[in-house]
Design a protein around this nucleic acid. Sequence first.
DNA 1: CTGAAAGCGCTTACAG
DNA 2: CTGAAAGCGCTTACAG
Lengths: 332, 332
Amino acid sequence: MPSNRSVRLSDIAAIAGVSISTASKALNGGDRISAETRARVREVAERLDFQPNALARSFALGRSRTIGILTYRATSTFAGPVLIGAVLQLGELQQASLVFDEDLLVPRQMTKSIRALQARRIDGLLVVGDGHERVSHSVTHHFGVPVTYAFAASDHPEDVVYLPDNEGAGRLATRHLVEVGATRIAHITGSRDSIAARLRERGMRAELEAAGLKQAGETRHGSWSHDWGAAAMSEMLDSGVEIDAVFCGNDHIGLGVLEVCAVRGLRVPGDIAVVGVDNWEGVVLDQGIRRLTTVDLELQRLGRLAAADVLAPERAPGEHLVAPTLVLGPSS
Amino acid sequence: MPSNRSVRLSDIAAIAGVSISTASKALNGGDRISAETRARVREVAERLDFQPNALARSFALGRSRTIGILTYRATSTFAGPVLIGAVLQLGELQQASLVFDEDLLVPRQMTKSIRALQARRIDGLLVVGDGHERVSHSVTHHFGVPVTYAFAASDHPEDVVYLPDNEGAGRLATRHLVEVGATRIAHITGSRDSIAARLRERGMRAELEAAGLKQAGETRHGSWSHDWGAAAMSEMLDSGVEIDAVFCGNDHIGLGVLEVCAVRGLRVPGDIAVVGVDNWEGVVLDQGIRRLTTVDLELQRLGRLAAADVLAPERAPGEHLVAPTLVLGPSS
DNA sequence: CTGAAAGCGCTTACAG
DNA sequence: CTGAAAGCGCTTACAG
């Protein structure tokens, strides 16, 4: 029963026999107050289950405890986890989220969203993008409150930006393959134009070099699909390149590679070890059974970190890369 | 530039040469006011880009324009889209979301979340569950504001509940198969204990009956996996049951079925038409190319509808089923 | 139709 | 250490 619907600070003060200002200080921990007064007020507040009216508090302090979230395609496969991580993190920090899904490149829409967010007196703003491939116009200068970019590259170098560490993902996958004994590692990946693909490849190269290894064959660029993975793997095997592992640019490609291995009677990981990227649940798990070793870019955690950053007392400008994790499966 | 940071209603009033109360009435559309006064005030407000302080407004009206969201496993595959739909819908309605992810069955956690939400003076509450299989304890009586349940069965019959129409999904899939000419429709699905599985099957039965058809063979219950789909399909074909279509309880099963068809040289949909359920992007799409006809339970829309319901002036108690949609692919 | 005044429930200098 | 008072910026009866 919500019996405390209307317990006010003034009630607490009256019962404790102090003024409202003293009661306020007692509860909020100011310093010029006697220990016994504080204890008495707190005891009364506790007993009456006092919950300070958040509306009045916000009004008095000028802080809304609401963070704006400006999203571009919130429903896309990869932006979804970022958004969910953000709203969960904000909730844990007792902050509400005011979410607008807009295309940051359309000035008209932006203006409308920006005005609405300003009117709501948000305490900070989180911009959630749709990955590496798209640069967002910086909106930081429109706001007098902290702005953080998550999963979005901003065009302003002083902005605080959180991105997945795609290069780190390539390093992590490759180091793992080296550690399980692979020495002839091939690479099949997505579009040549993709920034993420390039970064993952670069990470692989760095790690190969560190291990004193050479890449097996040339990188095969194509699409991010199962069919491309299968086609490229077939070609590669037919070409006679000797390989004992494949680092795949994403999970779909990885599954295509696995399929070709199965058809050709190659044992995985005995003959060929395979690692993907994304840890995309629907792709990589079949009713809880994992089919592929993969690298998780930790997008939900990225959302959480970026959201917490908006409220952090100290914020460092520039890019923050979120460390990926390796998820072991039967393919390595 | 946020030059309007401190334009207040009193500024507008002063410039327009009216009192604050008159200015307020002019902007908020009260009736006892002259047309010219209203026009003049509005013109001034427009010119100065006046944005009423949402904090003051909330305080005066006692409405926070914030909706609480109580989630159980917000990050699960199916609850995610519901949550995203909800926060996007609320944003469009200018409502902030205060999200707590808690297990509704753990009283301790609940109590804490409920108190925090009450303290924030939320205007309404949305409970987001994790599907049909789990019944949530009703929390409605803890709140003096509207409570709606999304993707969650409540144990109180008067609660307002939004659920996917699993029976409708079974009907929709079956009707489609009938319409494309199937007459011997088999059913492979998940666990016998699953409520969703039972409802989908019931929908199929109803539609078969309506079409004057009999199900081909018995329903095969197993897991929701690709491997089960393949195994069950193989068995079924070996058993000699004549079939020209399979209604699959989910997409993974559907893909398993497709795989067996491919191996056995059965043309899809020429020899056998296949329909799944879920429209799970990673499963059913390969880089934009669809592999399966499926039924989409419209979970994101469910989240939107439930969120809008919290704020609706009239709310109908009981279950609201959200209509599924058919998504055509190459398998039917 | 218009405006003076009270009220929403806190916080925070400031005087005592 | 404590309390009276002003202030946060709106809305809303109510008197005129």
